[in-house]
Design a protein around this nucleic acid. Structure first.
Lengths: 156, 156
DNA sequence: ACGTATAGTTGAAAATGTCAACGATTGATT
DNA sequence: AATCAATCGTTGACATTTTCAACTATACGT
């Protein structure tokens, strides 16, 4: 048992602080799960030279919604200049193309190329695995419920 | 109606992209709600010269659990060096004190001073308001359910 | 036609994140 | 008891990310 003492203590100490009242703060819970989650997701996406950011842009570019960069910035809660960098890189890799906006020539819509679509299909599989890893402690119904509540909190 | 056209279009365009499949990705939902949430929380805490980070440390310092800096780092998903900076600042403001660890003289425990406790009491009120703002779209039962699911995902 | 507002882009400054090293201390092994 | 590897807090360097202010081109109301 001496052999396991360190590990036990580490395990015991690991979640000791979960007893603090901050564990009832939604902001904190979101931050913590998000931190762990994006680590897992980034690791899963690294294989495709993507991060959660570029992956998100790629999904939206492939959605058929033809988002403009401004819309991407708003939706992803990012500064427009960050979108420029993300789209620059994806475009350099031929995964995405910029097209002049239909109504508004200032705007540029971002759409996935066939290569982008193909890469996305594979990356999505990895992302799904990552997600189930993050939500391993929840059963399917609970995971669905969590998603539904998050969506409702965001969009009513 | 021309008067409202812009706003309507802006509102219509605002959540247009929510139709994209990424809206079913937990990682994305967490990121988005977390982004909005920490903006709201930071705004609410600015009045007390706190940010969500320092507020979290203060709560844990006041929890009676006497966390060490290492434990704070692990629990808050931060690098130990960031904890140093956070505790430095709180200690400079007399909100918190470092004490040598009881068993382990390498470790330093962080505990709130009476001033820290007092500030925390006020900040907690602001934080609670911020939280209800973030979760405005959820009723009480749903908010509780969301918290429970997040806690379960984190700690099983 | 004019002035104001917006989209994308650029670049700089500030804030954060990451990492490697170090002294002090610990605990296990010999 | 002496030693060796590991851990804690700390510092400083470096990379990444965020934030912001300009700028050009375009749109739109008046």
């Amino acid at each position: 048992m001496t052999i396991e003492t360190q590990d036990e203590q580490r395990a015991a100490t690991k979640d000791r602080l979960a007893a603090a009242p901050i564990s009832h703060d939604v902001g904190f819970l979101l931050a913590k799960l998000h931190a762990g989650g994006s680590a897992v997701n980034n690791r899963a996406l690294a294989e495709f030279d993507l991060k959660v950011r570029s992956y998100s842009v790629l999904i939206l570019a492939n959605s058929g919604l033809e988002p403009t960069q401004r819309e991407l910035a708003d939706f992803l809660s990012l500064d427009p200049s960050q979108i420029v960098a993300l789209v620059d890189e994806l475009e350099k890799r031929k995964l995405v193309v910029r097209a002049p906006g239909n109504q508004d020539r200032r705007a540029k819509t971002v759409t996935a190329t066939p290569e982008g679509r193909e890469l996305l299909a594979q990356a999505a599989i990895a992302a799904r695995h990552a997600e189930s890893e993050v939500l391993a402690a929840l059963d399917d119904a609970e995971a669905a419920q969590l998603k539904a509540l998050l969506r409702k909190a965001l969009w009513g």
